[in-house]
């Protein structure tokens, strides 16, 4: 492998890993956000039922 091959490999791995981690983190973020919304809305429905 030539010098640019090593450079491309390093930059490719770093950019790829950071993009994959960002996508993974975004997914966790959206899932947690959806769960909070779901629990909050069911809490409001529950409190309405008590009234």
């Amino acid at each position: 492998m030539g010098a640019w091959g090593f450079v491309s490999l390093a930059y490719g791995i770093v950019c790829g890993t950071l993009v994959v981690y960002w996508m993974f983190l975004k997914r966790r973020y959206r899932q947690a956000e959806a769960e909070v919304d779901r629990l909050r809305s069911s809490e409001i429905i529950g409190s309405d039922d008590k009234i």
Partner: peptide, 11 residues
């Protein structure tokens, strides 16, 4: 994400 996980546990 950590904050929301705490919120989920509390709810």
């Amino acid at each position: 994400v950590g904050e929301m996980r705490q919120e989920i546990k509390a709810l």
